[in-house]
Design a binder for these strands. Structure first.
Length: 885
DNA sequence: CCAACGACGTAC
DNA sequence: GACGTACGTCGTTGGT
């Protein structure tokens, strides 16, 4: 086993180095010092450690020699306030700091090193100062330059620096003097001379004894001249090793950092990346929660809930999928650390109890006057809706709060939030239910474990509510929470529960036909390529195309720098008449449609309901859009004929029809509203074809003379506008020279100047606030605008504009959904909302209601808000989704 | 053997 | 480097 090591760090040497090395940030020396320290701790993992500081008190050297260090400049102004922070930092790292008034850090280091070596601990001096080499002693005391990393400097390395033996260093330094410390040496004797004389005579005393033998007059005179002060110089350059300092193992043993203090410090200093790397000391559950397994205790709780008109709840079930989930139990919380669990269907429970307890819980959950709070309430109420419980009263959701507070974050799960906000490690589901093959459903979990797990979740949800709601208020997000997001929860729950009917036979038939096409294409491509390969491997395809067939590569992939074979590349190659890329385009389309949709959808049909129940996620998109998964029903094909046919597989229930409506050009209309540009506003008010009108403006012709190509170009510009497209991309898209694309964009802004000034204003405001706000008050932080990287900043600018437009459009359709849900429930209609695809709502209803539902749908969508330009929703009815166009 | 990642492609 | 928001499939890679 190697010896234990004691790292002694020269504080100011590293502070100055950090100060000059790190640029462009506040607290640069603190940052640089922190990085050095972290690196050292991580890579060297020392057993003992200390940081040595100089003090401002006059040192014995100054007393002996008033000119000592008199030539030093004052500490740079911006460094001065960083020193106490660095001391705080070292304290947070739990590393002892050593000061010795009257002495310098070097003397502390010298003394501690010697003491440690005496106790058979290797002393490692962390410093770049070569003067320190006088302290080096065999393997007992070595030097370590943190800048160079792992390089140790022991006795054997010394000749490389000084060209002399270790015990000659002090005399060598004496002869040289130290100009940076204002210590005079022997005048006229330089590096070469000093080394030569020491090699010849052994040490300084011998040199003086034999002074008259020295041939060079210059040297003789120099030494004679320095004779009176040479001892003083020797004292000044000699590092002391005799301070009253002991090497005490307990004092200098490395300890765990005070991570909470470190975090607080990093937070204060805005060291974000460092902060993320500090492990949080997490609290664990210490509360014993109440098991409510008899009527009296349950009643006592329900009475208190009724009185407070508030409860946090969390249900436990047998499945993450609400359609399949059986209610196993319900946890309740009324205060921090005050939570309980009601077991309902654990194995072996009395069905009579289940019924009595459910009746009591249902009456509470359907009580209009009780506010209910849950984490991801959509799941809980979906399950309860499926049991026929009409959940009433206000519903709060801590997951929703977290999302609104930081929509850029992807982690809003309770376990994550508990760690983040409460420094608390929750019992994870896997810990009570097992993992992988061994995982059991919650009804098999023993009651005591189930109680602690479930009640803790309710408890934590309560504590998160306490923490997050005030933040929601401070950030002025309560309005968007109450008006848009919170009321949407039950709407989405109903939509997911409804699901959509899918014609499985139709897809099976389609799949077989596609398989034939794929086989044919495969064969053709193999023949053209002269060999068989995996057509689905971009790597293999790239090698075939660009190595074997010798086609010239168009571009490389971003990360792996391999040949790109994406659609645009294949199209470019196909346009030159190459057959393999042309066939590959067909192959790609058919296999994509088949594997992603045609084959996947029938597998997603729920066995119980016979329908597909996609999730509509409210917490994913940073702009406020919904997202859909399992399956994603928001990217069902429409653009190609073959793709569009897939939509015919989505059918209404027997005797019903599909009714769908989509907003026409909602994002461009928002652009018109926000910018108030007369041309854009006018065009929408007149009900003109917006792309035709734009083309007319840009190309300078009357709308009637706009060709299809001109309209296509204008359409690209209109969409690009919303995304912040540049001339490069537009040129690529339209196949025109970049210069021409640039002209188009310039003319666009000349003709519609207010669109440009709107853009500039949004960006300026976002830069000022560090975030962008949508019409209904949702925010999105834009750290990109703070970046020193120009590309990042440009991206931040695009995000600002796009988030305002896309986010507001998302809010409008969310409101339409809320209003429609309300209107339908107030009516005698039987329609249900099935899908939302960003600007489109799809419903099903009995055939005879189609007209009324369509009218209600249109009316609702068009009147969510009244803006500068009308919102237009186009309604279509059909026997399947494909027909609703 | 599986998880993470990259490339690609579908939607608005 | 150049256009925003998502999700799913497949192949590859790299660690267990």
């Amino acid at each position: 086993m190697t010896r234990q090591r004691f790292f002694i760090i020269d504080a100011f040497a590293h502070i100055f180095r950090a100060f000059y090395a790190v640029k462009n940030i506040d607290h640069n020396a603190v940052f640089g010092f922190t990085m050095m320290l972290r690196k050292l701790l991580a890579s060297e993992d020392p057993e003992f450690i200390a940081v040595a500081f100089d003090t401002s008190a006059p040192t014995f050297r100054k007393e002996l020699y008033p000119e000592y260090k008199a030539n030093r400049d004052a500490m740079p102004e911006s460094l001065v306030p960083q020193i106490p922070i660095i001391k705080e930092l070292i304290e947070a790292f739990n590393i002892p700091m050593v000061e010795a008034p009257g002495f310098e850090a070097d003397d502390i280091i010298g003394t501690l090193a010697k003491r440690a070596a005496e106790k058979n601990v290797q002393a490692v001096i962390v410093s770049g100062d070569k003067d320190m080499l006088q302290l080096v002693q065999g393997d007992d005391i070595v030097m370590f330059d943190s800048k160079k990393g792992v390089e140790y400097l022991g006795e054997s390395g010394i000749p490389d620096f000084f060209g002399c033996k270790p015990d000659q260093i002090i005399d060598l330094l004496t002869i040289w003097g130290d100009s940076s410390d204002n210590v005079p040496g022997v005048r006229g004797v330089g590096e070469k001379g000093a080394k030569k004389l020491l090699a010849e005579y052994g040490n300084l005393d011998e040199i003086y004894k034999n002074l008259d033998q020295i041939k060079q007059k210059r040297y003789r005179e120099g030494f004679a001249d320095a004779r009176d002060r040479i001892e003083l110089t020797r004292t000044l350059v000699t590092i002391r090793t005799d301070l009253e300092l002991a090497f005490d193992e307990d004092t200098y043993r490395r300890k765990e950092p005070q991570n909470d203090d470190l975090r607080a410090l990093y937070e204060r200093l805005n060291f974000k990346t460092l902060m993320e790397q500090v492990p949080i000391t997490l609290r664990r559950c210490e509360t014993e929660y109440e098991l409510l397994d008899n009527e009296e205790r349950l009643k006592a709780w329900l009475d208190e809930i009724k009185e407070k008109a508030f409860v946090v709840f969390d249900i436990e079930t047998t499945s993450l999928n609400p359609v399949d989930a059986q209610l196993v139990g319900m946890a309740l919380a009324l205060d921090a650390d005050k939570a309980a669990y009601v077991p309902l269907r654990h194995e072996g429970q009395d069905p009579a109890w289940t019924e009595r307890a459910e009746t009591m819980l249902k009456s509470m959950m359907t009580d209009q006057n009780v506010t209910k709070c849950a984490h991801n309430a959509k799941y809980d109420i979906s399950v309860l809706f499926n049991k026929g419980w009409e959940i009433l009263g206000r519903i709060e959701d801590t997951m929703l709060m977290s999302y609104l507070i930081n929509p850029n974050d992807s982690r809003h799960g309770m376990d994550d939030l508990a760690e983040q906000h409460l420094h608390y490690r929750t019992i994870h589901f896997e810990e009570v239910a097992g993992t992988g093959k061994d995982q059991v459903t919650f009804d098999k979990v023993p009651l005591d474990k189930a109680c602690q797990y479930a009640a803790e979740d309710a408890d934590i949800t309560f504590q998160l509510y306490d923490k997050l709601y005030p933040q929601l208020k401070d950030l002025e997000l309560v309005s968007v929470y109450n008006v848009v997001e919170r009321p949407l929860i039950p709407v989405l729950a109903r939509m997911e529960n409804a699901g959509v009917r899918v014609n499985s036979d139709y897809l099976t038939d389609m799949s077989a036909r596609m398989e034939d096409m794929i086989q044919g294409l495969e064969k053709e491509i193999y023949e053209l390529a002269g060999e068989e390969f995996n057509l689905k491997s971009t790597k293999q395809l790239g090698e075939i195309l660009f190595e074997k067939l010798g086609l010239s590569p168009v571009k490389k992939t971003t990360k792996t720098k391999s040949y790109s074979t994406d659609q645009s590349v294949l199209e470019a190659l196909a346009a030159k008449g190459h057959e393999v890329p042309a066939k590959m385009l067909d192959y790609r389309m058919v296999t994509k449609l088949k594997s992603t949709y045609v084959d996947a959808l029938p597998d997603m049909i729920n066995a119980t309901t016979g329908r597909v129940h996609s999730s509509f996620n409210q917490f994913v998109a940073a702009t406020g859009r919904l997202s859909s998964n399992n399956p994603n029903l928001q990217n069902i094909p429409i653009r190609t004929e073959m793709g569009r046919d897939i939509r015919a597989a989505f059918i209404p229930r027997e005797g019903w029809v599909m009714v769908a409506a989509d907003y026409s050009q909602i994002e461009l209309r928002l652009m018109a509203h926000f910018s108030k540009d007369e041309t854009l506003v006018g065009a929408f008010r007149q009900g003109e074809d917006i792309h035709r009108r734009t083309a007319g403006e840009i190309m300078g012709v009357v709308p009637d003379l706009v060709t299809d190509d001109m309209r296509r170009a204008a359409k690209s510009i209109n969409f690009g506008l919303i995304y912040g497209m540049g001339d490069f991309r537009l040129a690529q898209e339209l196949g025109i020279p970049r210069k021409k694309a640039r002209e188009y964009i310039e003319t666009y802004f000349e003709k519609m100047p207010k669109v440009l000034s709107f853009r500039d204003e949004v960006i300026a405001k976002a830069r000022e606030a560090g975030e962008v706000r949508t019409y209904f008050g949702r925010h999105r932080q834009l750290p990109e605008l703070q970046s020193r990287n120009k590309n990042m900043q440009n991206q931040g600018e695009r995000l600002a504009v796009n988030t305002l437009i896309q986010g507001t459009a998302a809010e409008i359709i969310k409101l339409a959904m809320i209003h429609l849900d309300e209107a339908l429930s107030q009516s005698d209609l039987h329609a249900s909302m099935l899908l939302q695809v960003h600007d489109e709502l799809v419903l099903e209803c009995p055939s005879e209601e189609a007209e009324r539902v369509g009218a209600l749908l249109q009316e609702t969508m068009e009147n969510v808000v009244h803006f500068e330009v009308p919102l237009v929703a186009e309604v279509h009815t059909g026997h399947n989704w494909k027909e609703t166009k």
